[in-house]
Each structure stands twice: as structure tokens, then as C-alpha cells.
Design a binder for these strands. Structure first.
Lengths: 251, 251
DNA sequence: GCCTGTGAAGACATTCACAGCA
DNA sequence: TGCTGTGAATGTCTTCACAGGC
């Protein structure tokens, strides 16, 4: 995962549920692939399969955008690509700065998925003076001192933070002060931002931890051989010293 | 965001809601920081602030794990670190392989957050023979031919895919065939896996698109402008009851 | 008095199932 | 006939608010 909005009471962003917004990019990707293969129309069933969701959900999602399908036929691929792009705001160009050009920042700078979606990397910024001028992804790295100027000169409203955790909050504050109102944070720390600024986070290790949780559970399953059986075991009342019931068993 | 399980009908793996599981790593990170500062106990209010959630939610989350707090006092930091670690399966060692050692793979290999959480990078694998032997993060890159052997020799059950999209599904199949049952996918593609295999995905551009959606809304209540006109492609009339002029205008 | 633990209420999200239209 | 669009039902998550133990 990688998720996490900050503030913004809930949904309401104009009637489109947040969960739906989060899936639109997924649909868009699947549709773009179909478009490249010159597929003219697609049914909710097919598109849902390509996007990895179920078809009722997809239809409901699209219904929030309007009635863009044709009963008995399906959806026009090109038309839907356009509508979703517009809804997501991808028909305009979004200049983005990436702050913190380590391995991850370089990976982001090189990532093709940005440019193809309306995002333009306006600058790469790093605090290390030794990096200044070094080209990364065909673009010279600029020093943090230039941050404010870069943002205002380019009208940047979206910033990506890929610095070490310790530097993230400070970078965040400078970005916000300079006019950035949306931040994608890769640093493993919670950013605090003023009202009106959106933060989303991607934490590489959190995803692995969630997988580990499920993995652990799989490993323990042969013991009990499932079944609607003896459950509960309990209101968990393990309190006391760390003692008891170590992990493995469903308890 | 970046999220997304595959299959697993729904939810609740043992009584702990999926949404709660996804937050445990967050709490763990906050608690670890407190632990390093030798803070002995913490209230739900304080910990919630540090983790960026609200306190009722945090208490509810913890209540699924058991009764680990003390009324009138709060939670014992060390004890809670242990309990959450155990719940997540981090008290054991998880060997992990990373397939696809480009910028992103290298960033992952160098990422300190793994080792400190019970994940051990067992091998770095890449399809490019020219990379074989090259050290990345102090570890030689191995060729894809070795994939099956590496997995079985190391008892790897978690794989990370950071290859280009085109290679991901095939890599995924080889991982699964070799015994991997949890996959973290960074490639922008939907993986299909057999029942029993968990997939989580992180898509860098999806997060940006979600930010763009909200950003667009902030900037534009000026409604009618929008230069580009719908791409031809379809004469498709947007029909619909109220069906015209969907997006842009808030109703 | 203070802070946890938790029923109950409410908000949100997903899924079902079918009416309605091409 | 086939597939969309959508109310209604169901399921999940969050928040409230307060009982209960320290």
C-alpha cells in the first residue's frame, strides 16, 4: 500500500468516492494498453479482468463519472481514456520536483510512467553540493538552495520527497512554504502539513510487513486444518508477561 | 497508495481486520522511535499523533490484538513493540529476493528499513548477464538462471519484483513455481497468481495521479476553460439522463 | 481523575440482482 | 440478446461516547 491522505474530511471531492478515485489510474492503465492494441470497445467484464477488480465495482465506479457506456455493447476505449484522464486532471501538465536524489530519487527520475501521464519532472533537487550539476536521467541535479526559486519559476504544485527520513519534514515545510500543495512522501516518517495540503505516502517496508503478516498465517495453517472449528479460543485475555501463546497458532 | 491484495476473499485474517493490519507497521515505527528515546509508556492520544491517526482508531486497533494497555496510564512501549512485531511475524527472519536490479531494485537493496524489520535480502537477481557479479549494496547480482536454486536454497517465500512491466508476469510465475507465496510488485502491471499467493503492489505513478485529482479540484472552481477537446475517435455522444458536461463542474 | 477498551451508531464501500436500453 | 447502470442489501471501517479499571 501506500496510501494515506491527510486531512480532507472524507470523500466529497465532488461526489466521487475516494476509493473510486484510487482505482481510476488502474482503469486508465488497462485502457491505455487496450488503446495501444487498437481495441475499439471493451465490456465491463473484460476491463475489470484486465484491471484486476470485479465488474460490478467497475461499473459502479464509472457510474460516478457519468454514463459513458453503451448497453449491450460496452465502453468505447478512446472515449473512456479521455474521460478518465480529464477526471484525474491528466489533460493538463503537472510540473513536479523530486527532492532527494539517492537511488530512489534516481529511480523516480527515470521512471517512464510519469511523463506518459502528464507529469513533467521540472527539477531534481538534492542537498549534497557534490551532486550539483551531475546529470541524472538527463537532467542536472540542483542544490536545495534553489528550491524556492525552482518552485515558483515553474509553478510547481506537486512535490516528491525521497530524502532520508530525518530531512523529510524540513523539506516538506520548505516545499509548502514555496507553494506546493500536494506531496508524495517516500521517506518513512509522518509529515505534518497545514490544512489544505495533501500528503500521500509510499512506504516500502510497510508493504513487506503486511505480506509477512499473511505469510506467517499461511505457515501456521497446517496445524489446525481449518474448518469452522474451535475457534475462538478466546477472548484474548493474554495480558501479563510476554509469556504465552507465541504467534503461530490462530488463537 | 499502493495497495492491493489479490484474491483472499475478504479480509479478516484471524480476527484482525485488514485495515488494522495495514496500520500496525505504522504504529510499530512510531513505537520504535519512542523506544529509542527510552520513553517508557505512551497514551493512545500521543501515539496516535505520532502515527498520524486518531486515537479512537488506534485503541480499537489494539483491542483486536488483546488488552495490552493500562487504564489511567497508557501502553508500555517495549511490550507493545514486541506484541506488534510478533503479530506481524517480524520476530522471525524473512529471506527476500529482489528481481530486477535497475535504479529501483538498487534503491530497494540499499533500503535500510528492511533489515531492521526482520527482512533479509537473500539475493539480487537480474536478467542482464552483464550485471552478473556486479556488486549492488555490497552483494553480487545473480543471473535469472539461478532464480529457482536461490529460492529453494534459501527457503525464500517473499519476492520483490522491480523489473520492467513486460517481464513481471513471467518472473512472477517463476517465483511462484519455485515456492514463493508472497509478492511485492513494483512493476506497473496486474499480476495473475494462483490461489494462495498474496500480491501487493506499489505503483509510483498511481499515487501521483491521485494527488493530481485532488490538486485539480483545489485549483479549479473556475470551471469552464479546459483547452483540449475530446479526441475524435468516437462520435460517441455522451448521453445519459443528465448526461452532459459531466466532469469539470461541480453540480 | 485519567485513560483504556468496547458496544453502538454512523459513514463508506462492495456486491447483488435486475430493470432498462441498444 | 447482452451488457450497462443502479437501487437495495450486505459487509467493512471509523467514530462516538461512556462504562470500567487503575
Amino acid at each position: 500500500m501506500a496510501t494515506g491522505r491527510t486531512h480532507r474530511p472524507a470523500t466529497r471531492s465532488r461526489g466521487i468516492p475516494e476509493a473510486t478515485v484510487a482505482r481510476l489510474p488502474l482503469y486508465l492503465r488497462a485502457l491505455t494498453a487496450l488503446s495501444e492494441r487498437s481495441v475499439p470497445t471493451v465490456s465491463s467484464e473484460e476491463l475489470a479482468a484486465a484491471a484486476g477488480v470485479n465488474s460490478a465495482k467497475l461499473r459502479k465506479d464509472f457510474s460516478y463519472l457519468g454514463s459513458y457506456g453503451t448497453r449491450g455493447v460496452g465502453y468505447d476505449v478512446e472515449y473512456l481514456v479521455y474521460q478518465i484522464s480529464r477526471e484525474l486532471g491528466l489533460t493538463q501538465d503537472w510540473p513536479v520536483v523530486i527532492v532527494g536524489i539517492g537511488n530512489l530519487g534516481a529511480a523516480l527520475a527515470n521512471y517512464g510512467g510519469f511523463a506518459s501521464r502528464g507529469f513533467r519532472v521540472a527539477a531534481l533537487i538534492d542537498a549534497d553540493p557534490a551532486m550539483a550539476g551531475t546529470p541524472v536521467a538527463g537532467m542536472p541535479v540542483q542544490h536545495t538552495d534553489e528550491l524556492e526559486k525552482i518552485i515558483s519559476d515553474n509553478g510547481v504544485s506537486i512535490g516528491v520527497i525521497s530524502t532520508p527520513a530525518g530531512a523529510a519534514q524540513q523539506v516538506c515545510e520548505r516545499l509548502v512554504a514555496a507553494g506546493v500543495t500536494s506531496i508524495l512522501n517516500f521517506a518513512p516518517t509522518v509529515l505534518s502539513v497545514p490544512e489544505g495540503v495533501d500528503v500521500r505516502k509510499v512506504d516500502l517496508s510497510i508493504e513487506l510487513q503486511i505480506l509477512a503478516f499473511h505469510e506467517q498465517r499461511k505457515a501456521g495453517e497446517d496445524a489446525a486444518h481449518e474448518g469452522p472449528v474451535p475457534p475462538v479460543s478466546a477472548k484474548q485475555q493474554r495480558k501479563g508477561p510476554d509469556g504465552d501463546v507465541p504467534a503461530v497458532m490462530p488463537a
